[in-house]
Design a binder for these strands. Structure first.
Lengths: 187, 187
DNA sequence: GTCTATAGGGCGATAGAC
DNA sequence: GTCTATCGCCCTATAGAC
């Protein structure tokens, strides 16, 4: 056995989620999270840039998967179709619906967590737009397709975790896009 | 003349924008902003909830104007058209292109300012969606139309302040929506 | 207006893995 | 020897409490 218990990072993530859910984000101090995880406060900040980031540790993997999926799309795929197919693949990486609901409730209860979540989605959209540009899509079209895809993803996610939802995430995404298409169609 | 110089709030906004542009957001302390404006640090936090908020003081007016414009649209206007018309009216309230460029550069240089800006746009989208629901638009459609409208607004704004831009803001918004419509049209 | 808890960064020391 | 994770102590600014 080493000098320390392994996976300090995983313990910190778990402890943070528990405490944020139990007492709220603002009422939880970094020292409390660290204590529950069996490390010092300073170690917490070495793993996570700030108190919020501990809830977003998986977002990089999601982004990599989505960008990789766009790169793997056939050359003749239309931009919006490539984006939506890639986001459906990314959607399959999310944790269970029950966990997603719990996490969403924690985020919804605190505006600084909402800010961080919005930044993550914005960063995802930027990465998607860049992947589209690599495929030769013009910048303006790439930005619009990326932002629109992320909007559909977000609204599909909200539908998926809603109390009365029955379908899976991919279905929710497709339904949202169908409605968006109807909404923007010319007169 | 009163006991204090008038418009402490306006002086704080100006001082903050100058210092953020000169030295960067993180390198500027609330005490420095207050000093330049001729008030105490405590007064700064009485006017603005945090260091970021001083750059977003006009966002409430924009939101009120947009929501009011939606309420004033004819009953038979299609949701997306009502949203875009309202956002064009909101766009007319923005400061000059030169000032907008400078402010955008300050925000782009700091991720916590980007987070706050994204939250303001998200709040705007929520208010737009609520205004649509008051008109009888179903929730899912209202959310999609609101998010899509704000996306078009954001991308139109980016186009408007770009170095090579020539058109006015309203034109940029209409161009962005035209491209979005083409992008999402069925095969 | 004063006081204070907390966030979060800097830096060197330490103990293991390789 | 190098590399990496952790500790511990110091510091300042934020932002809320009183």
């Amino acid at each position: 056995m080493g000098r320390w218990e392994p996976d300090a990072r995983g313990r910190l993530r778990l402890s943070a989620m528990e405490l944020y859910a139990e007492h709220g984000f603002e009422q939880t101090t970094a020292a409390e999270i660290a204590e529950r995880a069996g490390v010092t406060e300073r170690t917490f900040f070495r793993h996570f840039a700030d108190k919020r980031e501990v809830l977003f540790a998986g977002s990089g993997d999601l982004q990599d998967a989505v960008v990789g999926a766009i790169d793997a799309e056939p050359d003749d795929a239309k931009p919006i179709d490539a984006v939506l197919a890639a986001l459906e693949i990314g959607a399959s990486l999310l944790p269970s619906r029950e966990y997603s609901r719990q996490r969403a409730a924690v985020v919804a209860a605190n505006s600084s967590l909402q800010e961080r979540e919005l930044l993550k989605f914005s960063t995802l959209a930027d990465a998607v737009a860049e992947a589209l540009r690599r495929r030769g899509v013009p910048t303006l079209t790439a930005n619009l397709a990326a932002e629109t895809g992320v909007t559909v993803f977000k609204i599909g996610f909200a539908t998926w975790i809603a109390d009365d939802s029955t379908g899976d995430f991919a279905q929710c995404i497709r339904e949202a896009f169908g409605r968006l298409r109807a909404l923007t169609a010319g007169a």
